[in-house]
């Protein structure tokens, strides 16, 4: 749900994250994230979708400052958080941004109890005044995510995959973050468990008014879960629109090819499905630089001026 006042929680401007390897003439640069811009408003879920290696995880990790951005700016609640961080700002980022990871097993310290795992965020951010208050908050959040206080003393290995992901969600939410970055939070789970966790996240975001950056490769899931969606390809956002718009009227040929590749649980549809193939050669970016341009209200496409003309006239590339 997009708040009517449209208060930006996160603004990403021309963000670049390059990784280089080798030296001298052998040096290669991997442009994992290559000049992307988007804004996430309070209370909305922004989906980032694309195939593996397109730069989704790197985007999330750069925003939460696990990496030093190569270039560009990140504003969090209006404060610049790229570049040098003061102690104050660092503190605000640690509390205000939380991450839910794909692999609930690898992301939980096996030697810590659930209570310690969840309580860590409270301790670091001094969000409770005494031990009892801390316990109360932990019990509270455990119930919120569908676990019980009896679970607090146990270790991660005693839980199923779905339950571990609930612990990961509890850990992320205990600090009342202003932005939650969920990186493929259900990809590692079994089908029936995926639906349970998806329902939980959906309920929580409504109840708590969460603002979420939701990263996934499954388009049906992203469509279901997001208000707006950015489609990433090769380190760039090639299309950005409201979820419904993107699915009903995709513009960029890559988005079209991605949509045409999803197999749907509908045999009639599958028998008649026409695949659309994306060929990067159709773009001619030698003469004119492409940019993310608004074609219709709220619907942006990465295109050169000549392509923009075509899109506006409704001519496919």
């Amino acid at each position: 749900m997009i708040n009517s006042t449209l208060q930006p929680v996160l603004e990403v401007k021309n963000l670049k994250q390059y990784f280089s390897s080798g030296r001298g003439r052998r040096k290669t640069v991997m442009k994992a994230v290559d000049d992307i811009s988007f804004t996430i408003y309070k209370g909305e879920t922004f989906g980032l979708v694309g195939e593996s290696g397109c730069g989704k995880t790197t985007t999330g990790r750069t925003i939460i400052r696990l990496y030093e951005p190569t270039d560009g700016e990140i504003y969090f609640n209006g404060t610049l958080i790229s570049g040098e961080l003061t102690k104050e700002i660092k503190k605000e980022v640690t509390r205000g941004m939380q991450m839910i990871f794909q692999d609930p097993i690898a992301s939980l310290n096996p030697r810590m109890t659930v209570k310690e795992i969840i309580g860590e965020g409270l301790k670091i951010n001094k969000l409770c005044r005494n031990e009892q208050e801390m316990l109360d908050m932990i019990y509270d959040i455990l119930e919120t995510v569908g676990l019980t206080r009896e679970h607090a003393g146990r270790y991660p290995h005693e839980f199923s995959g779905g339950q571990r992901q609930r612990i990961g969600i509890a850990r992320a939410l205990i600090t009342s973050p202003d932005l939650v970055i969920a990186d493929e939070p259900i990809s590692a789970l079994d089908v029936s468990i995926q639906a349970q966790v998806l329902n939980l996240l959906n309920r929580l975001r409504k109840k708590l008014g969460l603002t979420i950056l939701f990263i996934a490769h499954d388009l049906s899931v992203v469509k279901y879960f997001s208000d707006r969606i950015g489609v990433m390809y090769n380190g760039k956002i090639v299309e950005l629109a409201k979820a419904d718009d993107l699915y009903k009227q995709p513009l960029h040929p890559y988005t079209k090819s991605l949509l045409s590749a999803i197999p749907l649980p509908d045999p009639h549809h599958e028998r008649n499905r026409k695949r659309i193939y994306y060929n990067t050669q159709i773009h001619n970016y030698e003469a004119e630089q492409p940019q993310l341009v608004e074609i219709r209200p709220g619907h942006f496409v990465y295109a050169s001026p000549a392509e923009v003309e075509k899109y506006k006239k409704g001519i496919p590339l």
């Binding site: 388009l219 049906s220 469509k223 997001s226």
Partner: peptide, 10 residues
């Protein structure tokens, strides 16, 4: 029905 399809409303 356990997973959303493209018509499932959030």
């Amino acid at each position: 029905v356990s997973m959303p399809d493209l018509d499932t409303s959030s």
